[in-house]
Amino acid sequence: MRAVVLEQFGGPEVLACREHPDPEPRDGWVVVDLKACALNWHDCLVRRGQYPGVSFPHVIGSDGAGTRSDTGEAVVILPSLGWGDDERAPGPGWEILGDVTPGTYAERVAVPVDCVFPAPAGWSFTDAAALPLAGLTAHRALFARGGLQSGETVLILGAGGGVASVAISLAHAAGARVLVTTSSEEKLELACALGADGGAFYGDAGWPDAIRELTGGRGADLTFDSVGSWHDPLTATAAGGRLVTFGATQAAATEVDVRRLYFAQQSILGTTMGSPRDFAALLELVGRMPGWRPLVDRILPLDAAAEAHRVMEERRHSGKIVLHL
């Protein structure tokens, strides 16, 4: 099969599209003939060597959609492997597809049978491939962990990213008021087209004050964070509010004003990915959003994976980047 194969860690240039052995599924696993796969920031981190356990040659990639080789059914892949039975957190055997287990930048991939779900009715493979990691991360962060309720205000940081763009639509569909931070007027307009009511530019020093002004001085009930630097986001969060965090794109360590946190009765919640039950809930929600599809910035061929990684690292995209097979 053709695959994008990683032979060493490094920049986008280490990604090479070439012939690679077909996957050999274990008992309880199934092979999916992929029609599309999608990029995530996580893929760049694996490519750089920031996750242990990779052995070369390796195929990265978490998101994919295609057909089951045994039944021909159109499916979308849950990239959260071995979550376990505890909904509160993944078990010790949990991993993200493409970390150690060969991933989706290929014509075929082998995954556990409980990680394949029917593709949403009427969706293209491109649309379906754009959903899993971003959609699952957003859904669990907003609802299972963040406890978002209809009528609440959610602040979504960095609205140009794939997870954030999905989160805007899911939160809007659930009846929440959505505010965002973003880097440009163009991206703010795009966020509003997805369901946001407004927002602020994170390059402006006073952006938390702008968010508070948009909420009548109160702040957001829930702040949705992939940045990892919490001082300003917590300032923009209401007393009694929650900050749910799933990324560290700006900082892997941060400082918190502990007194302000406990006097304001705020909560900080960690999350990553989600369980098969979370994924089923996500698919049920998008099934009630018949006109909605994940925001796709561009579609490129599989052999353009290196260029796709450059686009992602240079933040020249809004929404998902998809590779078509």
Results as ranks from 00 to 15, higher is better:
122 G>C: 11
64 G>N: 02
183 S>P: 01
253 A>I: 09
307 E>F: 04
12 P>G: 02
304 A>P: 01
268 I>S: 00
53 G>W: 04
32 V>K: 05
164 A>W: 09
80 S>R: 06
293 R>P: 04
83 W>L: 09
8 Q>I: 03
128 A>T: 06
214 L>N: 04
19 E>L: 12
94 W>K: 00
32 V>R: 05
231 H>V: 13
186 E>L: 11
13 E>T: 09
35 K>E: 15
209 D>V: 09
239 A>V: 13
68 R>D: 07
27 D>E: 15
168 I>A: 08
299 I>N: 03
159 A>V: 05
56 F>Q: 12
89 A>Q: 14
156 I>E: 04
165 S>E: 09
195 G>Q: 11
211 I>H: 00
278 D>N: 14
245 T>Y: 01
18 R>Y: 04
243 L>Q: 02
74 A>R: 14
113 V>T: 14
173 A>P: 00
155 L>N: 05
277 R>E: 14
237 T>H: 07
307 E>T: 13
160 G>H: 08
287 G>P: 08
315 R>E: 02
274 G>M: 04
186 E>V: 13
35 K>N: 12
267 S>A: 15
243 L>V: 14
298 R>L: 13
149 Q>W: 09
240 G>P: 07
126 T>K: 03
70 D>A: 10
213 E>S: 12
67 T>V: 15
167 A>C: 13
298 R>I: 14
236 A>E: 03
12 P>L: 03
239 A>W: 12
52 P>W: 11
74 A>P: 10
33 D>R: 15
47 R>K: 11
282 L>P: 01
205 A>N: 04
175 G>D: 08
292 W>S: 04
268 I>M: 11
70 D>N: 13
256 V>Y: 11
169 S>R: 10
157 L>T: 07
21 P>H: 06
293 R>Y: 10
224 F>M: 08
258 V>Q: 12
325 L>S: 00
259 R>F: 14
81 L>D: 05
324 H>D: 15
139 H>P: 03
204 D>I: 04
154 V>C: 08
163 V>G: 07
46 V>Q: 06
101 T>R: 15
301 P>D: 13
10 G>E: 11
71 T>P: 07
251 A>R: 12
201 F>R: 12
164 A>F: 08
1 M>N: 06
101 T>G: 00
180 V>I: 13
142 L>K: 05
208 P>C: 08
205 A>R: 13
213 E>K: 13
41 W>Q: 13
127 D>K: 06
15 L>Q: 06
157 L>E: 07
274 G>H: 05
236 A>K: 02
22 D>H: 05
2 R>F: 00
119 A>E: 04
216 G>K: 11
38 A>P: 02
87 E>G: 01
108 R>G: 05
246 F>V: 08
30 V>Y: 03
230 W>A: 02
5 V>Q: 02
228 G>F: 02
228 G>R: 04
53 G>F: 01
148 L>S: 10
4 V>H: 04
68 R>A: 13
166 V>T: 14
96 I>Q: 09
45 L>D: 00
248 A>S: 14
120 P>N: 05
148 L>G: 06
317 H>P: 03
150 S>R: 14
256 V>W: 06
23 P>K: 03
234 L>T: 01
61 G>K: 07
116 V>T: 14
101 T>Y: 00
147 G>C: 11
223 T>F: 10
52 P>G: 04
230 W>R: 00
271 T>D: 05
14 V>L: 02
